[in-house]
Design a protein around this nucleic acid. Sequence first.
DNA 1: GTTAGCACTCTAGCGCGTCGACTGCTAATA
DNA 2: TATTAGCAGTCGACGCGCTAGAGTGCTAAC
Lengths: 348, 348
Amino acid sequence: MRREDLTIREERILSAIIETYVRSARPVSSGAVVRCGSLKLSSATVRNVMRSLEDRGLIEQPHTSAGRIPADHGYRYYVDRLMGPAIVSNSDRAQIRAGISVLGGRDIATIVTEVSRMLSELCKQLAVGLEPAVESGVMERVELVHLEEGRCLVVVGLRSGQTRSALFKCGESVSESDVAAATGLLNDWLDGLSIGEASQLLKRKLKEKDCPFRDLIWSMHGRWDRIFHLHDSERVHYEGARYILRNPEFAGDASLLGEILDSEEALADLVRKPGSREVVVTIGHENHRRKMAGVSLVVGSYRVGETVGRIGVIGPTRMQYRRLVGVVDQFSRLLDDLFSSSHWQEGR
Amino acid sequence: MRREDLTIREERILSAIIETYVRSARPVSSGAVVRCGSLKLSSATVRNVMRSLEDRGLIEQPHTSAGRIPADHGYRYYVDRLMGPAIVSNSDRAQIRAGISVLGGRDIATIVTEVSRMLSELCKQLAVGLEPAVESGVMERVELVHLEEGRCLVVVGLRSGQTRSALFKCGESVSESDVAAATGLLNDWLDGLSIGEASQLLKRKLKEKDCPFRDLIWSMHGRWDRIFHLHDSERVHYEGARYILRNPEFAGDASLLGEILDSEEALADLVRKPGSREVVVTIGHENHRRKMAGVSLVVGSYRVGETVGRIGVIGPTRMQYRRLVGVVDQFSRLLDDLFSSSHWQEGR
DNA sequence: GTTAGCACTCTAGCGCGTCGACTGCTAATA
DNA sequence: TATTAGCAGTCGACGCGCTAGAGTGCTAAC
């Protein structure tokens, strides 16, 4: 029996405390646990157990003569071992299916935005969606287009269906046929590479003495990293600031949340976790960022071809983990299905 | 003398009240106005004047025996007639210049994001940036690219330097030379039109009996409105949620701000005002949206070719209008310069 | 027209006592 | 030995009254 293992009774009481606290947002007393019904114990016994849970850091007491509230460790124990399989209610499931089903054929940005919105509505939490990072996407086609006045358009299409484009200056001397030939060459070089690999390869080619179309490719490569810069590469969508601001735990200092909401990069950073197929829950202090105490994340991932995107919710540690994990998981799965379906493939 | 005209003395006192209140965030007493120094009056006289200002709805009293706070009308009078020309301090001006100068050659999305960030930092307010609406942009070039498996890429370059692209399905029967010919045709048709006009024209052409490449153009046109849908058409960037959440006036119900922060469309809607060359100030209830009481906007515009984008700040009505109008104006002008400069034109 | 003076009003803050919720301990109990 | 009833003790929430102080509105004098 590991040090942190709890007896059945302790587990039951911890569950009761957490579930009651999530509902009420107020410290849970021994009496309240008894009134939960599932245990046939007196409040005195429950108190003894609570004291032991407190000694182990699973719950804490705001002050003497108050009830207990779950500590981050307590939530962690609950999520890992007590809450049981994340079950999605029929109503939730139906809503998710219906919402996803109307998105067939839309582009990724729209899908991610809409899914964030739905996730936020359904969970009543701040929801975040990350498009798949373009950097890791695999190139399907690159095209240069010759314009007037020595300018050129570069367009990159990825297997995921995402496309990016930008203008660059190539000098008056470049002819239309040069551009066409360079396009052919680039496609030979870059097909099947990721954006990052492509950039590396271009750099190498440019160093070679006999690099063909050096000036043209040089100019284009100068744009490359900017086109695929994070800002445009891994777009962040979020919805539902109103929900997180509504929580009583943030009533005092909403400025903390300001920091979270503020920067798309910070948000992306939070949600971009070491990849895992499963939904990942991060509770309070487990976020190493400062000032993220009191905030939990539930993050899932979805695949689009070779690339991975993420969706998740952000809320107070006092959140309905079981339901949220279920909903996020369901969304992730359906997005996976959507992006691998023939409907999506063909609709593009 | 118009009904709402004030005497010099009344104006001085109104100014003193507003400026003191903006600094202190607390009701301003008659004594505080006297202590401001610029008037040689007793507090009793000031009290008489304040009562008359209150009768006209320019200031209000939270409760008897409290000082006065400016009403929306008072701010309006101040902004229109009292605060004087918006003057930008040398330090602000230098920072703005420096910030803008490093943006030469970047793409519009990056520029707008960075400017929002700078504006937010400088003003310590929530800042919003809108890219120019792509819809009203003028087409410079449209290009179709033939891909494998009956798919096609459409790329549109605008005179503003913005580009958009998307994949669509065109059917296996379309040949590479068809695509090239169709590209030429499209450029003939669409050159110099706005995106909106182009969509109309394509619709007309498709109705004609002898429309060439009907299937191809039909498929492409099916994508058209989605590519240029608001979501991608008039991107919104914002920065500085932390600042607006920090204001004491929103300490209680931040959920109101949640509604503002929440939806990019709502933000865009706020900032997208009837066009004007000048910086536009919108105070509290002048926003017709409900629940926008207590919130003011300072919005400027900048041109990129034929299209117009906007930048602005959003904060409590208790804001430093003079300085903010100056800073927003300065940014607008420098953006205008940036986008019309040969440096920008050529750098693209 | 302006001001000094004064009575009045209202808030913020403090101290106090009470109530009620909850705990921790102890001794009785099954 | 595990559980429980009972009880004393602790602490926050609430309401009350009081006071200090800030600020007003009015009036009479200048």
